[in-house]
Amino acid sequence: MHVPILKQGPNLIATVQAALTDADLVELRDELAAKVGNLRSRGVVVDVTALDVIDSFALRTLRSIAYTTRLRGAETVIVGIQPNVAFAMVQLGMKLEDVATALDLEEGLALLNRELRGGGNHGG
């Protein structure tokens, strides 16, 4: 299932759907990397509100999205991790250490705008 990516000013917004396969996630990473390069985006918001499970593969891929986009000059914020999912993730020992996180799309965009204005707080 293809993940739609929207452009909003200097930012890109990708909203993930529920039944996301491994292949979809990898495809998303590659697409985001390409678009950031082409559109010279400064920020990326990946909204995972619909994910009811984030396992080790999903985590690795989210992290690699953050890394690849950063290489091309954009900061990524992961938003929408649900309470139950966050709890399961820490139980499993997974951390999103160098990746910014925010509560939802609104907060994520606010964070990116603060960053852009130079002097916002990192979510971590």
Binding site: V53, S56, F57, F87, Q91, L92
Partner: peptide, 16 residues
């Protein structure tokens, strides 16, 4: 719900 997510996550890991 919380436990459901824990169980689903554990299943995902072992299946993986």
């Amino acid at each position: 719900l919380g436990d459901q997510t824990l169980i689903a996550t554990a299943i995902s890991e072992v299946a993986r």
